[in-house]
Design a protein around this nucleic acid. Structure first.
Lengths: 140, 140
DNA sequence: CATTTATGATTGTATAATACAACTATAACC
DNA sequence: GGTTATAGTTGTATTATACAATCATAAATG
């Protein structure tokens, strides 16, 4: 790998993360943290915070608070595990599913706006490489 | 642009930002915020917080605090603007320059480790596309 | 030239996202 | 049945950020 490429990636990642931290701070609906948690629940529902924390690679305490916040807003419901007195399941609610879709669509739209004049090939590569990079981070 | 690409980018960006927020939280030297500020000072030194805030697209108050922290650690020095009683310059110190290099090298190394078996072409594209995306974000 | 307005910077306050440590309640193990 | 492990929550701390208020000085205005 050329050193030039490496240096570009290093700097641009630093910039990107700062930019996105700021940019996504200004939403009134779902905050970024809740978004991924809600997505995860929408997919692999019927799990507790421990499992979610593992899947999302976050501390259990973090997920516990985020899940409590979603519960508060009626986006999920917390159900006692009948077979284990310590454990709970979370289920996304119908309302949660709707809100998730709304938020996701808004995100898609705003990203689409950023990419308006990108060649298809660039958009395709960017998605693929982001995914590949995340994979590498996850396995690290 | 295919909807598939868009959806991939949307999700992978959300994951990336979470991952990097966490991953870079555990360094003892320079925190991420200081890093970009210090880089900026290393390049375009002799400017005050207002200019820095504009360049970094951050609120002035944020930069003011970050700069104060760098000053505290002797990584920069704060100099009164002789021509304007309200204003200051910041200059990176020799020590600051050294620390910046050390930190940057460490970052390069850890990213390089992630990309070990990436084809050159992928690394090159990833850097180029990140930069392009940041550009789009900046101009938004 | 005196008053008002604009500007550079700092500080107070608030919020979001996170981790680690301490704790509670229940289950599993021997 | 006592000890250890596990699911989850809560207390506390840190980092990064923004917005609003404030301070001091400079610039503009009449």
């Amino acid at each position: 790998m050329s050193n030039q490429s490496l240096e570009t990636i290093e700097l641009q990642l630093a910039i990107l993360i700062r930019r996105l931290t700021t940019a996504t701070a200004d939403n009134r609906n779902l905050d970024r943290a809740s978004y991924l948690l809600l997505r995860q629940l929408s997919d692999s529902g019927q799990v507790g915070v421990k499992t979610l924390a593992r899947e999302l690679q976050l501390d259990v305490s973090t997920v516990s608070r985020q899940a409590a916040a979603l519960d508060q807003k009626k986006l999920v419901e917390k159900i006692k595990d009948p077979t284990d007195g310590r454990a709970f399941f979370y289920n996304i609610t119908h309302y949660g599913q709707q809100e998730l879709e709304i938020y996701r669509t808004a995100r898609l739209t705003s990203i689409e706006r950023l990419l308006t004049d990108w060649p298809d090939e660039d958009a395709e590569s960017f998605g693929r490489l982001l995914k590949k990079f995340n994979q590498a981070l996850r396995e690290r």
